[in-house]
Each structure stands twice: as structure tokens, then as C-alpha cells.
Write a protein that binds this DNA or RNA. Structure first.
Length: 521
DNA sequence: CTAGGGTTAG
């Protein structure tokens, strides 16, 4: 109404443009934003740095980097916001090389520029790079790490299992006088839990007065990953008692906790009530949990019934949970039934489908089928993500890929590993699992690689570089395979070492020849 | 609202 009353005043000024362009960025309105860009040029306030920055940022957010770059190049005046926005655009697309180049070139940096670089590394799963940038940031007198940077750093430590550096960040936070926040507590809890120190996570949790749904969720998920299902449920009760409403991810953690601890009835009742009590409608992930829960406990028919009646299309994870249940319970017939069912579905979308089938055939001993699938995969150039392990020694995270030659001490590591394998075969009763083919998404292909799985290399390195009796902590990006699992058991026994391996889904603590997962994972 | 951060099953 106002606008109609005063048509003469309806030409927006640069402040209005800035405001509207920013709104387009936040509301995901690329078309509208673009049309505004055209109008900006008409009213000739495009030389304003605020207008330019908001336009540049808008294109960066939408991933239209050619457009963003054009705005950047045309801006006569640039400031730290201009540079940071452009860097963020590239970082979000995973073009870290471009981002890095600009970051090195920019005339001045502030805290936010560092956050953008560090969080960009995390988004591209380059956690070691994230920590490297953080250390560089500490050398820069003009900036001080803020809450956002520290959250990123803890996140990187959590992914890497870098306990020492995580502890260092914790001390830094306590000394820095940053106000207590649920964000930092959440990141600390998650870091400790993922680094194998659920006890420290618990201490942080109990020491904080600012708890929200995220704090509780990271604690619950942490307990779950450590196989502490009952404790996870207790934590859930405490959360409810404190009047905090769980979200979909909280419930995922709780259900998974039930699954790992065999709490079938409890899990089912939580699942059945999540909509009415918490207003969270089950997503495909929750169905995945319940299928896993039922399948693991041996209720295969019931699990299959859930898959058939669920309101959405079952995804690859669900089929895998079912097949994994068949494998655990040695139910070949049911497994083949499911494979029949899957092969009628879309066969060539995910590489996951191939691996899944291959695993099942391998577990059924149908090697000719495995070989055939393998050829098909090679023919289609399906790429699988490489297996990778990390180990932190003296505050430095060492990364092991199947191509271990990259590591400066690789020959020594190989020699050590050969020795270890020999010793455990003779003294530890270890027998190599020669049938091992793609047990999980283990892409470390035995045929083509004389290389060992990355977790074996990491453990050899750990034995070389740590004192006798020190626990060895390893993080692996995929699930540990059966062969490595039994090797770790033998090593823990023969070399009297506690070995803690965090794999993709949970912790395995090897001690005196046994694993905390009770061979059930 | 000219630029920045966290929890996630298998």
C-alpha cells in the first residue's frame, strides 16, 4: 500500500538493493537475485562495495562461480569480505586448490577468512589440512581463534581420531576465556567420543551447564558407538526429564544404541512412538535402524516385512542391513531371496549395489558370481572410495592409504608388518583369511595390491613408534574387515598391546586376544 | 540481512 501511495519514491537505493540481494541468497531465490543484478546495473550503484559483495556472495552461495568471478573482477574496490565470499564459494564446491590460491593472495585476513578455509577443508574431508591451517592461524598475530574455528578444529580432530590435538584444543578453550557454549561442549563431547575417550566425553557433559538437544545427541551417539546401549537409553531418559525434545538424529542414535545392545523391544517401542510422542516422522534412516535391529536379533522375516511395508523406497543401506543379518545368521536361502528381489530393482545406479551383491556372493561362497560382478564393475569404471587409516603419534596424524609408499618410513613399516604377521601366525594362531573379497566396502583390493590394508600398516607403524604397553589408537574410514579384525586380536595378545580401532560404525577395543565387539559388528 | 562453525544409522 505504501509503495502505491508514493510511486515516485519507488526506485530503491543501494541499501535496499543490498538487503534484497542478501535475502535472495538466504531464501534460495537465484532467479529473482539475477533479475535484481540486472536492475542494479541500470540504476548504476553497482560500484558500491556493499552491493558488489552481496551480489558476489549470492552467486557464491548458489555455486555459480563464473558469475561470482565476473562480479569479483569488475569490482573496483575490494575488501576482506569480497575475498572471503569468493573463497567460500570455491570451498563449498570442493575446489580447494582455487580457494587456497585466493587465500594466499588476499591482502588481509580476519577470523572469518580462516573459518572459511578451515571449514572448507573439513567439507572436502581434508582434516589434516584443516589442522595445518589452524596451526598457521595461531602464528598470525592479527587474529585469535574464536568459537567457530575451535568447533571446526575439534571436528577435524574427531574425524582423525587426533586425541592429543583435541586435548590441546580443549586446554586452549579453557584458558582462552571464551564463554561457555553448547556448541563447544557438543564439539568437545563428539571429539572425545570419536577419539575413544567416552570417559572424557562424559566429564565434559557433566561439567557443562549449557545443554541442548545437540549436546545430548552427541553424548547419546557417542555411547552408542562404544556399544553402551543401556547408557545411551539412560541418557535419553535424562534428556526427556530435563525437558529437551529429541530430534530425528537423537532418535537415530537411540535406536542404534538399542540395535547394538540387542534391546529389541525397547527399540521397537521407541520407533513406534516417535511420531506421536516426539512429532518426528520416521525417515528412511530410522527404518534402516529398525531393520538392522530386527535383523541382527535374528528376526529376519519381521525385518523383511518392515522393508516391504515401509512408506518410502528402501535404500541401499536397508538392503545391506538385511543382507548383513543373513550373513550373521548364516541364512543362505533368505539371502538369495533378497538378492533376487534387489536384482529386479535398478541394477546400475550405485556402486553400492555391486559391492553389496559381491559381498553376499562372497559370503555364500559363490566365487564365480563374485568374479563376474568384478568384471562388470571394472568395465563400467565404477570408482570406490579408498580405504584409509589414521594414527596420531606425538601430536602428528599419519595417514595410511593402500599406496603406502607415500609415507617417508614406508619400507620400515612394511618390514615391521611382515615381521608382525609372521609372529602372530606362529605364536598367535592367526590364519590369514584368503577368501576375503570385498567383505565390506573394503576397496583395498587384495588382487592388485601387494599392499596391506591400511589399518595393518597403521598398527605396524604404531608398534614401531610407541613404547611397549602404550595403547595404539587407529581410525579407519571404512569398516574393518574380518581378516584385519582377527589379526588385531592376535597382535593385542602376542605384543601385549591394547589396540583401539574406530571404524566407520563403532569402536573395537582389542585386548588380550579379544575384541570388545564380541565379534559382532 | 555485505562474509563464518556443530550432532547422523550402515
Amino acid at each position: 500500500m505504501l509503495a502505491l501511495d508514493r510511486p515516485a519514491l519507488s526506485i530503491p537505493d543501494k541499501y535496499t538493493f543490498t538487503f534484497v540481494i542478501t535475502a535472495c541468497s538466504h531464501q534460495q531465490l537465484p532467479m529473482f537475485g539475477k533479475s535484481i543484478h540486472g536492475r542494479v546495473i541500470k540504476v548504476a550503484c553497482e560500484s558500491d562495495i556493499f552491493v558488489g559483495n552481496s551480489l558476489l556472495n549470492m552467486y557464491s552461495i548458489f555455486g555459480q562461480m563464473d558469475e561470482a568471478r565476473k562480479v569479483f573482477d569488475e569490482m573496483s574496490q575490494k575488501d576482506v569480505v569480497t575475498w572471503t565470499s569468493l573463497i567460500r564459494g570455491y570451498a563449498k564446491l570442493g575446489e580447494m586448490g582455487r580457494a587456497e590460491e585466493l587465500f594466499n593472495k588476499m591482502p588481509e585476513r580476519n577470523e572469518i577468512s580462516w573459518v572459511v578455509m578451515i571449514s572448507g577443508c573439513i567439507g572436502s574431508e581434508r582434516y589434516n589440512d584443516a589442522l595445518r591451517y589452524f596451526n598457521e592461524m595461531l602464528c598470525d598475530d592479527k587474529v585469535k581463534p574464536n568459537e567457530a574455528v575451535l568447533v571446526c578444529v575439534l571436528c577435524a580432530c574427531a574425524h582423525l581420531g587426533a586425541l592429543d590435538q583435541g586435548k590441546w584444543a580443549h586446554v586452549y578453550i579453557d584458558k582462552s576465556g571464551l564463554p561457555e557454549s553448547s556448541n563447544l561442549s557438543t564439539a568437545l563431547i563428539d571429539m572425545y567420543a570419536k577419539c575413544g575417550r567416552i570417559d572424557c566425553a562424559d566429564r565434559v557433559f557433566n561439567g557443562t551447564s549449557k545443554r541442548d538437544v545437540l549436546t545430548f545427541t552427541s553424548m547419546i551417539s557417542g555411547l552408542t558407538a562404544h556399544g553402551l546401549g543401556k547408557e545411551a537409553l539412560q541418557m535419553f531418559s535424562q534428556m526427556v526429564a530435563e525437558g529437551i525434545k529429541p530430534n530425528d538424529i537423537t532418535l537415530l542414535g537411540v535406536l542404534n544404541g538399542c540395535s547394538h545392545s540387542g534391546l529389541v523391544e525397547k527399540g521397537c517401542s521407541i520407533f513406534n512412538e516417535m511420531e506421536q510422542i516426539w512429532g518426528v516422522s520416521p525417515k528412511v534412516e530410522h527404518y534402516g535402524c529398525i531393520v538392522d535391529l530386527l535383523g541382527r536379533a535374528g528376526h529376519l522375516e519381521q525385518a523383511f516385512e518392515v522393508v516391504k511395508t515401509m512408506p518410502m523406497e528402501p535404500d541401499i543401506v536397508i538392503w545391506r542391513a538385511l543382507l548383513s543379518a543373513c550373513r550373521i545368521h548364516g541364512n543362505v536361502d533368505f539371502g538369495e531371496l533378497i538378492v533376487d528381489h534387489i536384482s529386479q530393482l535398478d541394477p546400475n545406479v550405485h556402486s553400492g549395489g555391486f559391492v553389496l551383491l559381491s559381498n553376499l556372493y562372497a559370503s555364500l561362497g559363490r566365487w564365480e558370481k563374485v568374479a563376474k560382478l568384478r568384471n562388470q564393475m571394472n568395465g563400467r569404471k565404477i570408482e570406490l572410495s579408498p580405504g584409509c587409516s589414521w594414527i596420531e603419534i606425538d601430536g602428528i596424524v599419519h595417514e595410511f592409504l593402500p599406496a603406502v609408499r607415500l609415507h617417508p618410513q614406508s619400507r620400515e613399516i612394511h618390514e615391521k608388518l611382515n615381521e608382525v604377521m609372521k609372529v602372530i601366525s606362529i605364536e598367535g594362531g592367526y590364519v590369514a583369511n584368503t577368501k576375503q573379497v570385498l567383505f565390506d566396502l573394503s576397496e583395498e583390493d587384495k588382487e592388485q595390491a601387494l599392499a596391506w590394508h591400511s589399518e595393518k600398516l597403521a598398527v605396524a607403524f604404531g608398534l614401531l613408534r610407541t613404547d611397549a604397553g602404550t595403547p595404539i589408537r587407529i581410525v579407519k574410514n571404512l569398516r574393518i574387515c574380518e581378516d584385519c579384525h582377527s589379526a588385531m586380536k592376535s597382535i593385542s595378545h602376542v605384543f601385549s598391546r591394547e589396540i583401539i580401532v574406530r571404524d566407520r560404525s563403532r569402536f573395537h577395543t582389542f585386548k588380550e586376544g579379544k575384541c570388545s565387539c564380541k565379534d559382532y559388528w
